[in-house]
Nucleic acid binder design. Sequence first.
DNA 1: TGTACATCAGTGAACGCGCGTTCACTGATGTAC
DNA 2: TGTACATCAGTGAACGCGCGTTCACTGATGTAC
Lengths: 193, 193
Amino acid sequence: MRFEKGHKAATRRHILDVASKCFRRDGVSAAGIAGIMSEAGLTNGAFYPHFESKEALVREVLASTLADQQHRLEDDQRTGLDLEGAIRSYLNPAHLADSAGGCPSAALLPEIARQPVPTRQIYEEGLQSYLSTLAALLPDTDSATSGRRATAIFGLMVGTLQLARAVPDAAQAEQILEGGVAAALLLARAPSL
Amino acid sequence: MRFEKGHKAATRRHILDVASKCFRRDGVSAAGIAGIMSEAGLTNGAFYPHFESKEALVREVLASTLADQQHRLEDDQRTGLDLEGAIRSYLNPAHLADSAGGCPSAALLPEIARQPVPTRQIYEEGLQSYLSTLAALLPDTDSATSGRRATAIFGLMVGTLQLARAVPDAAQAEQILEGGVAAALLLARAPSL
DNA sequence: TGTACATCAGTGAACGCGCGTTCACTGATGTAC
DNA sequence: TGTACATCAGTGAACGCGCGTTCACTGATGTAC
């Protein structure tokens, strides 16, 4: 079977999307190539014409998932979402329940820290870019302090969401999220940081 | 070779300690039984007289590592360390570099969230107990708000340390840590949360 | 217009390897007689 | 006192399985003549 133009690029895109979900749901090391490919409706052998290795896939997935996350935040911003809205849409029961479709940092950070340097480099770039979008939501005029503040707020949101996900008691998880929202708003509004 | 009394308990303890390091360094799913046992100076077969399964090992490692972390914090507290000292000893380049010997939450949280409920239950208990020790360092008089505040501060510290570890640039990692210290102090001292 | 061939995305079996787990065995020591 | 035996922590080979990766092959289509 020969395919219409653009078919291979579409398949590649599809593998990336499925792999992104699998990595966030199961972890990078626990998600296998064969599993990803079969979830994408393909066989394991079809992976290597698209990607050089699993490591290369991880790099591409990270870059693309971080870019998606940033684009979603930019869209929210364009439709008038303020900082409090952004915080509440992150520290949120729906996000808590949807690890596979949620923030890659919350799902994968310790594993990212164990990746080879080129992978971590790509993460750093995607993170910086995302944080600058987040910083634009802050009241600060000085971009140096707004960067610091955005980083701290993001660190708080990531750690808080992870804690809420780890805890088996749903009521306690929700309390953790609520406390995180209050703390993030406090960080956002504090006169100096 | 027959062994002196207490030998088996000492071996078990040793396996727990080595496994704790391996899990934090490599991740739970990437650390294998054979690797842990050989790092402990034993062969793979010797594992099962000590533990029922890898899952049981994970449970025991979590309980014991969280208890250790709490005891260290209590000791610090007894020797006069204040909250700022505790925050600085967590968001610290030495802790950043020593994932294997550091905070299990920073090294493992997303993986803990993927564990079966009994494991997460044990994490929740160890976390609560640790957080109550951390809360005791806070100025609050009301224990309900000090618990909320301690949880938010811990979430911030965990997320911030993970971000700093993931980023390959050492200077940027240090800036992330410093921003985290400032934010954690702000959360600790804010009049209301 | 009809036919032979080139293209190439995807198939599926196989590679060596490490996983978690099981089990028959070893061998140094303490105990029983 | 000397010897036979029970104990049991640890050994190491083996189980079935899934891992990441390779590769000869398939087969539907576009192109050349």
